[in-house]
Design a protein around this nucleic acid. Structure first.
Lengths: 129, 129
DNA sequence: AGGCTGTTTCGACATCTGTCGATGCGTGTG
DNA sequence: CACACGCATCGACAGATGTCGAAACAGCCT
């Protein structure tokens, strides 16, 4: 392995280009090859959305009015209720959702910062055309 | 399940809002709850990027000059060569990369359309704040 | 208190996934 | 032509993952 090329560096990863704060995680995918550590972090977020059921649950929460929804409102995704809970937990562990109990119901809401970070990861890639 | 809410519809999913063609797949995540079919498709793309090694490989290709790279240029990711090949195949199957043999080497390049589609999926979510 | 409903946790299990070494295929080179 | 090199495929295997039913936990309500 490793052969036939011989340049790199440039785009030194300036610490602050835009005012995008909040979970910066990593530079755009096409900025420079991702390090192992960065990839580990970013892959967690992508993996969380890499399941159809989780994606539907996430979309259901994100599209719900107020940006939040209780479990009872979004558990019509074709799997058992424990499975729904399991997936919500995964989304929460990945940092994509946060939960809060209010009386009988538990409400989930999207974590906007992480979403922005993922968007930024992909957004930069458009220049690579 | 299913209780306690009672509205939906609005945002009828106009067939063409912006000139964004190419692999539209699905509306932004917060537009409306994703259907099972849409989720199936979109989850494939996210899952493809949901592995650290694949993410590094993808980033390596995306950041390489010319937007393409031969396998030999990007196979320093800490796994064996067959594993690299396996992951590249997965990225290709997911539609994120395309490959082309030129003489001895095989070159991979990013598929910009799909990238744009994923970006659009996440981009809309910013309004959900 | 007792029961009811909403949600999470617990085991269990089949399947999928990432990884490797060995092997095969395609292409230049001696 | 024989060999070396780049890359893909094959078979195997340990570990992760999605799913379920049963049970536990947490608030309401009568």
């Amino acid at each position: 392995m490793a052969s036939k090329n011989g340049r790199m560096s440039h785009t030194e990863v300036l610490p602050l280009l835009e005012p995008q704060a909040a979970v910066p995680c990593c530079p755009p995918l096409n900025e420079r090859p991702m390090s192992a550590g960065e990839a580990e972090i970013a892959a967690k977020m992508f993996k969380a959305l890499g399941d159809p059921v989780r994606l539907r649950l996430f979309s259901a929460v994100a599209s719900h009015e107020g940006g939040e929804a209780c479990v009872c409102d979004i558990s019509d995704v074709g799997v058992s209720q424990p499975t729904v809970s399991h997936h919500l937990k995964k989304l929460k562990d990945a940092g994509l959702l946060s939960s809060e109990r209010r009386g009988t119901w538990v409400y989930y809401r999207v974590e906007p910062a992480v979403l922005a970070a993922m968007g930024a990861l992909l957004a930069g890639t458009e220049k690579a055309t």
